[in-house]
Design a protein around this nucleic acid. Structure first.
Length: 131
RNA sequence: AGUGAUAUUUAGUUCAUUGCUGCGCCUCAGGGCGGAGAGGAAAGUCCGGACAACGUAGAGUAACAUGCCAUCUAACGGAUGGAUUCUGAGAAGUCAGAAAUCUGAGAAGUCAGAAAUAGAAAGUGCCACAGAGAUUAGACUUCCAUGAUCAUUUUUAUGAUUAAUGGUAAAGGUGAAAACGUGAGGUAAGAGCUCACGACUUGGUAAGGUAACUUAUCAUGUAGGUAAACCUCAUGUGUUGAAAUGUCACGUAUAUCUCAGUAUUUUAGGAUAAAUCACUACUCGUGAGAUCAAAUUUAUAUUUGGCUGAGAAGGGUAGGCAGCUUGAAUCAACUCGGCAUGAGUUGAUCUAGAUAAAUAAUGAACAAUCACUUUAUGGUGAUCACAGAAUCCGGCUUAUAUAAUAUCAUACUAA
RNA sequence: UGACCCAUGGUGUAAUGGUAACACUACGGUUUUUGGUACCGUCAUUCAAGGUUCGAGUCCUUGUGGGUCAA
């Protein structure tokens, strides 16, 4: 049985990695989310993992409650769909993902889930297919 | 009874599945079990503290804050109560009017509300426009005296006129504001010029009150507003804030450039001076403060290195732990004090601690409110605010659905 | 987390507590055969609310929005 977990080790925290991702990362877009991602090759296949982060602009959402709500929705959608598309044992490399919420208003969980599924499907197709 | 405004209180509950962050226990190291997990404002960052680091040799000035009194408090610009002033309400009695149970005025007392409420009688500044005059006030029209001219004839008079000289602040008019109010005396006309009553300022005395202050009385005087203009007086404030601070680990460049200083004297100990630094804005004052070597030159001196200090441009790291949540803590009982806020003692309890930052998602049921519908129990649908801890407390300010309570206003209905 | 600053026509800036000014843009008009130039005119709840004052863009308080700095 698959486990839909999302712990601390799956979060992208390092400021260096995030700034590098902004500087030189591939990008995808589907309303209401924009995805920045990059891949690095690990020495052994067991260390392959995906890390992710979410940002919501303060300029568009003044209230901290709304920003927290959107971040939680995106995180929930990612948590429920990650094992379907990019589980750790099927990865050929390590992934770093950054979801940016672009829309101006708060969306429902369904539309966010659809966007996440689309993004993850694109990633699954690519999935370091140069190897 | 409804509606609206203001203030205060309240700030949904339960279950299932899947997850997140600490803590405790177990473990075959994959994990498992148990229990905990955002607010009344966590917000704004407007005040006051705790705590921490640095400094402590002070004095004066500056800057900032506060400003009726008492109490509470760790403290406060906060709270509670009181004093004073102002505003409003109401209208028994009173006065005025009148179309006669109507209208208006209104002292004290009553009720409600507001006050950055020390000083404008220490000094300086400002008061546009209008107005004669806006602060050692002022003379435009009036009023009055004198002079001049004219007329009359009662010729020591009367009347009129005035680019003259003076007096006046009563009347007019301007303005937000015109320097005590009313009445009488007085005067050429007038004026607190004088008097009576009243109002207020300052000082003294007496009584009441913890005090602010109130009442009475004596003397003194009549003074525009503005301190949320400068300012004066009193009181207070050392500076910086968890990115504080300590500690462990990793890593780099004891490098580079610019500027200033490295002095004098004494046998010696030492003394003076000294770039600069500290007392955190300035001055005085006090304290700290490197003070060596080599080369060239007759010497003064110059150069180089070292050392001290200031700055520039760079390099590296940006991880862990502590600080961190047991605290002016919460709840209950008793005692003390009081107008009120409170204080003490005893007992019980532990109630978030994250760090690219957890506290959630989905579904169901109940409760509350609203709308529609039904004879009715009920049914269907919708709504459920403001808002998210970041070292911790006490306040203030602002936001806030539904419901409850209190006060005020009131269309309509009923009596 | 802490400290601080700003807000005036569409834009950029002024204004001792006393009639909100200037430049550019936009719009309308005059001049011109037409266009440009030139000239004339129009466009302001001084961020919001409250207070002090006879009188606030200015002074004070609270809020709203925007921005800056601190290892």
């Amino acid at each position: 049985m698959k486990r839909y977990t999302l712990g601390k080790d799956q979060k992208l925290k390092s400021p260096k990695a995030i700034s590098a991702l902004f500087r030189s990362g591939n990008s995808l877009y589907k309303y209401p989310l924009k995805l920045k991602w990059s891949s690095t090759e690990e020495s052994s296949k067991d260390q392959n993992q995906s890390k992710f982060a979410v940002t919501v602009p303060k300029r568009k959402f003044k209230s901290a409650v709304k920003r927290n709500r959107i971040k939680r929705l995106v995180r929930e959608a990612y948590r429920l769909n990650r094992p379907e598309y990019i589980p750790n044992d099927k990865l050929n490399c390590s992934l770093e993902l950054l979801f940016m919420y672009i829309a101006d208003k708060e969306e429902t969980l369904e539309t966010i889930t659809k966007a996440i599924q689309w993004h993850l499907q694109e990633l699954q197709i690519k999935n370091c297919n140069e190897e």
